[in-house]
Amino acid sequence: MSQTSVTEHIIPHMVDTNKPPVIILDKVNKWFGPLHVLRDVSMTVAEKERVVVCGPSGSGKSTMIRCINRLESHQEGRIIVDRTELTDDLRSLDTIRSEVGMVFQSFNLFPHLTILENCTLAPIWVRKMPKAAAEDVAMSFLTRVKIPEQAKKYPGQLSGGQQQRVAIARALCMRPKIMLFDEPTSALDPEMIKEVLDVMIELADSGMTMVCVTHEMGFARQVADRVVFMDRGEIVESGRPEQMFGEPRTDRLKLFLSQILRGH
């Protein structure tokens, strides 16, 4: 039941690579009370694919990405992550959560734990890793995000850019197969955006499957295999970044692009 192969019919916004899809959204619908926030959202993400999701504020980007690791539950349609269908079944939830890492706009580090403890917490409690091994792993990832020297500090003592890099390291310590990013640079001061994007670019180069909500067009051009444009709860258009930004097909995307270009 939960081991589902690719669905029978063709899903729009599907990848044209021959790698197997690791995330499948099939006609997903979600409501917050009367508010219809996801409308027949369908797409797939292939293994090692890097997808950037963009769209106006309130268009349902966060909601969609949060459905992928079931921080929100959908009401209609199917979501299949790494061959496990997301249902109310708790076991499938545990599997998904430990295989999908998430980075939030507001970092959400645990302020009462040190940087190192933030990173070792889940490996120790969820993966049952011995403390020393978990610390080794954490230090290696903190080195990769270039802040090993902050390990003993508390989140409140770090700058926003440093905190977000810790949040990325914390997610990576669980060795996820998929990483989700929800506007990881939107809460940062301009001079700190680059240090976070650099870490994300390096992660993309290492072959991680990534779904990233962001308006950083430069980042999208550089790393995205595909850009997905959402508006009012539906996926309007998707394609390669140069095609999406260079020759948008729909008026809604044209409007959106003109708005963010003016903003920049």
Binding site: N69, L71, M102, N108, L121, W125, V126, R170
Partner: peptide
Amino acid sequence: EAADALGLS
């Protein structure tokens, strides 16, 4: 949410 996303029970 961060704790949930990390898979903590």
